[in-house]
């Protein structure tokens, strides 16, 4: 293949992504209404999933903390929403989550395997019940209302968060820190003895992933309009990103994105079509995919490709 051909091939993926981004930007003008709500819901799940993948996929630390970070974002928005301009609120939501992640990370990232998962799971419940207790005891309220903002605003903010997240993830993955994160997942002790400051790297990456989850929570709060601790710190928001990422396949970055798109679309459709059987259907789909799609949708696609192209593309 000549040099020009290689260059063209290199340009193909960014060009495709740019077209996709333009289409997404144009969507609210072409198709206002329900489509916008549906798409920003999907975008929200992509943000949650990719943020989770950013830290947990390379390092192998299964975090069930996303609901905590998301909830902190939601509460930031609920408390500050009427006092400060929206972009500022979103940023503070992200930073507040990152601050929590720094704290939690410093304390707990030495826990190994299932203990880390259990700890982060408990953390969400601790925060939920603490906020519940605090509100009943000191503010005498339960739940808060938020001023609604136009759907298009929510849509564009969510899209901006996603773009920022994808760029961040891309640069981390390509940098030497991406390699280092992966080496932590492979063998943490060896990584430390190869000169990598494993503790610092884990904590900072954990915090970076929390920034985006928190920011997404801050804008999502406005879409919810009414929130209370049960809504804000819903454990489903911890499990969904994990399930979506695994559903898509963890190997490449596009796997979790694909997983989030397909799964959250399915979820929205099932909720509206079969409200009474929705959990049953979702549960079954998940169970089947965990049992029969060990490498997620990506693995399935690769298998099909191999069958069609006869093994030549086995490693793409």
């Amino acid at each position: 293949m000549n040099a020009v051909g290689v260059d063209l091939k290199k340009l193909r993926a960014p060009a495709l992504l740019l077209v996709l981004l333009l289409l997404l930007i144009a969507l609210p003008h072409a198709r206002p209404g329900y489509a916008v709500v549906l798409v920003y819901t999907i975008l929200m799940y992509i943000v949650l999933t990719v943020s989770w993948v950013l830290f947990s996929a390379p390092t192998g630390y299964v975090s069930l903390a996303p609901a905590a970070f998301f909830g902190v974002g939601i509460y930031t928005s609920a408390i500050l929403g009427m006092k400060l301009p929206l972009p500022v609120v979103i940023c503070i939501g992200g930073l507040a989550s990152a601050f929590l992640a720094l704290l939690v990370g410093a304390l707990t990232l030495r826990l190994k395997g299932i203990y880390f998962a259990i700890f982060t799971f408990g953390l969400v419940e601790l925060i939920k019940h603490f906020v519940l207790w605090y509100e009943l005891k000191y503010t005498g309220t339960r739940g808060r209302f938020l001023l609604p903002v136009g759907n298009n605003t929510i849509y564009y903010v969510m899209l901006a968060i996603l773009v920022a997240l994808l760029l961040t993830t891309y640069f981390i993955k390509r940098s030497k820190y991406g390699l280092a994160l992966q080496s932590i997942g492979e063998d943490e002790e060896a990584a430390a003895h190869t000169g990598i400051n494993v503790t610092l790297l884990k904590i900072i990456t954990f915090a970076i992933s929390a920034v985006f989850t928190g920011a997404a929570g801050a804008i999502w709060a406005i879409r919810l309009t009414y929130i209370d601790p049960y809504i804000a710190f819903d454990v489903n928001n911890s499990f969904m990103p994990v399930l979506m990422a695994i559903f898509g396949g963890l190997g490449q970055l596009y796997g979790p994105i694909l997983g989030a798109v397909v799964f959250s679309f399915l979820r929205e459709v099932l909720i509206t079509r079969f409200p009474y059987y929705y959990m049953l259907l979702i549960g079954t789909i998940l169970l089947v995919s965990i049992l029969y799609l060990p490498n997620g949708l990506v693995g399935l696609i690769q298998r099909w490709r191999r069958r069609i192209w006869g093994g030549q593309h086995a490693n793409t």
């Binding site: 399930l243 049953l280 549960g283």
Partner: peptide, 22 residues
Amino acid sequence: FESNSMLASFSLLFIIQNIASI
């Protein structure tokens, strides 16, 4: 296996709870 089985049990939670609510 530990992480896969935890996720599988989470989907069981969904399935059992939904059947019970029916």
